[in-house]
Write a protein that binds this DNA or RNA. Structure first.
Lengths: 204, 204
DNA sequence: ATTTAGTTTAACTATTTGGTTAACAAATTT
DNA sequence: AAATTTGTTAACCAAATAGTTAAACTAAAT
């Protein structure tokens, strides 16, 4: 087996493809641009990943497998609902700072092709709400938390965490903030969101 | 001046373009597909709207001018913050049922080209938070509402309302619901969201 | 009825783009 | 070191695509 530049090249390609796909989407991305970005010939893209579709799926799966563990954390650990919420919002914000394009990329491409999810849902490591649901029900019965369905609460948590990054340009305009001020808002949200959610659901 | 089919054709084109652009995005849309959808020849698209870009902008501006009034309603009317929140969530959900593709379309295309907003912000009818901010501050001073910045509250309201429609495929998978069950969740949110937000901010 | 302005089409063009080929280069095996 | 396998490139190809052209058609105005 040869390598020398082998693994290195594959990594370069994936990194370049990630950059291009995540900023332009599947339809907007050009194989030539990815090749240029990776500093190689276009034919080499097809040597490593047969087609644009396959290269795209490699990038997409990479992105998704970074996001999934974040969700499993909140759904499957043993701490209280309140602590889960605090941990999740805190973890998620720092995750996003490292990978700012991921949420929008995933959401956009899943809207373009919802079938991606069919395969993924069969993977046993795909996040599910079962445990979260039971735990929430127990805390509601114990009077710690006001009645709310696990689905609604989960959607709310995701919405409050993810949306500000997905809709950044729009929200920047509406709140009339520049990049710096908007990032400051995002930092503040790490605590704000958690308190907001806890207030909303905690029995008083 | 002649018309006969004039306005009619232009309307047909815009309707067809809306359909194609909103489901495939600027890059994924094809002029031929829009022409077919409108039941006309491709050259006619260029006769009415010189280029793909111009046709796209017409569709985009149409979509945006449907969304903007929704926001101005909550930001500039005179009722209490609580009532504004209830009215907005109620209005927004029924708006979305009529125009399900709009939020995702706008968000996606603004991420692709944030410069769109520069022109729009100059329009005096572009929504802004000034009035909402003052009103909120007053209610906080009066002890009706717990301290929160207008920007954060606004982002939270938008997030809770818009995100479930933008991220529908992803959330459908995570909550393990089919289309029917997910739509039921969305109906329930009309009341759920409002209560959730009020609980979170109302002083007790 | 003829002119005129607006509307519509089929056919065409130039360019872009994903993908292929064939030849070359470098490393591994024998 | 000869043969084989793996990695890389330039040149090429066919399909797709945005946009153009020139001619035909329609209906109102003169």
């Amino acid at each position: 087996m040869k390598k020398s530049k082998d693994e290195n090249t594959e990594e370069h390609i994936l990194e370049a493809a990630k950059l291009v796909f995540q900023s332009k989407g599947m339809d907007g991305a050009r194989m030539q641009e990815i090749a240029d970005q990776a500093g190689i010939n276009k034919a080499l893209l097809h040597y490593y990943f047969r087609s644009k579709q396959m290269l795209f799926e490699a990038v997409f799966n990479n992105a998704f497998s970074l996001l999934a563990p974040q969700l499993k954390a909140i759904l499957n650990d043993e701490s209280t609902i309140e602590n889960k919420i605090r941990n999740f919002t805190s973890n998620y914000i720092s995750f996003i700072v490292k990978h700012p394009y991921i949420p929008n990329f995933i959401i956009q491409e899943l809207n373009r092709n919802p079938d991606f999810l069919l395969k993924m849902k069969e993977n046993p490591s795909f996040p599910n709400l079962d445990k979260f649901k039971k735990q929430l029900q127990k805390e509601i019965e114990n009077g710690i938390i006001n009645p709310i369905s696990a689905e609604q609460l989960f959607i709310n948590i995701m919405a409050l965490n993810v949306f500000p990054f997905v809709a950044k340009p729009l929200l920047k305009a509406f709140t009339n903030t520049d990049d710096k001020a908007y990032n400051k808002l995002m930092e503040d949200r790490e605590i704000e969101i958690a308190n907001f959610i806890i207030n909303a659901i905690k029995h008083t």
